[in-house]
Computed example of a mutant assay.
Amino acid sequence: MDVTPSCRALGVVLSLALLAGCASAPRDVASRDADESYFARQLPGLSGDWGVAMSPVDNPILEARSQGNPPPALIQQALLAQHERWVGTPYRIGGTSFQGVDCSALVQNVFEETFRLSLPRTTGEQVHQGQPVSRGELVPGDLVFFRPPGRYDHVGIYLGEGRFLHASSSRGVMISRLDNRYWQRHYWQARRTLEPTHLAQRAQVSGQG
């Protein structure tokens, strides 16, 4: 029996749903995030300013170690270095590379490269990793989850200072604020895959390798 165009279209939609790792947020997120810069910056510490632009050739892990920074600050530096690598990468549902990436694939790649920690591919699986953590107790490296309108949930990595790294469907890989009206409205929960000390130790090993 011939496959009708509507059946073929349904098959394509189902295939995309299986590949998708996160939410496809509405396009008007771009206007809500209009006051957000890409924050391609280096944080000297948890309570400091965003500082000056960081050169991609800098090694923030070794620098943080030499300054005796605590684990959260070291994790923060490592994640900002990943932001330098990924910033500007467009959002692509099902994408896993610099040619295009979705939110859960970005999280998976960053954790593998930064912490040598393998996370599942999809947001639905990542939300069951580690332990739940309240919004008021977030530390750098925690996963933050959102439930925006639409079929898919969304995930990012908390950086500290109320900001998180993620792959926005409207602007690609970027840093946004948790208190942004859109993200604040659709905030869902957070998970801690490993305690900060353990994540920092893994980041040191990756930074040396």
Rank of each mutant, 00 (worst) to 15 (best):
E84M: 15
G88C: 07
P132C: 05
G94E: 05
S97E: 11
S47R: 15
G48E: 12
S66I: 06
D35P: 05
Q126Y: 03
V107A: 09
A53Y: 06
V87T: 11
R135C: 09
D102K: 05
S134Q: 14
S31Y: 09
R147Y: 05
V155I: 07
A78T: 14
P148I: 01
V101M: 04
A78S: 15
T122L: 11
P120Y: 01
G100W: 01
V133W: 03
E113M: 14
G68H: 02
C103N: 08
V57F: 10
V133M: 06
Q131K: 10
P120K: 05
D28L: 13
L62Y: 10
A30W: 01
L106Y: 03
P90F: 01
D153V: 07
P149G: 07
N59F: 00
G68D: 04
E84C: 13
P44R: 09
I61G: 00
V107E: 02
A30E: 05
G100E: 01
G136K: 13
H83G: 08
V110R: 00
P132L: 06
R92C: 07
E125L: 11
R151I: 15
P70K: 03
C103F: 06
N59P: 03
E36A: 12
W86Q: 01
V29G: 01
G88M: 04
G124C: 07
A53P: 09
W86R: 02
P70D: 06
L74W: 01
P60N: 04
N69Q: 12
L106E: 00
I61Q: 00
G95L: 04
Q77F: 08
V87P: 02
D28P: 08
A30N: 03
P149L: 07
D33A: 14
R135P: 06
P149W: 05
V52E: 15
G94S: 10
W50Q: 10
E112I: 11
V57I: 12
V87S: 10
F111Y: 15
G48I: 03
P56S: 08
L74A: 02
D49W: 11
D153T: 13
R27A: 15
R27N: 13
F111R: 02
V87A: 11
P90L: 04
S97Y: 07
E137V: 11
P149Q: 09
G130T: 04
L79G: 01
Q108R: 14
R151P: 15
Y91G: 00
S97I: 06
R121K: 11
L117Q: 08
D142M: 06
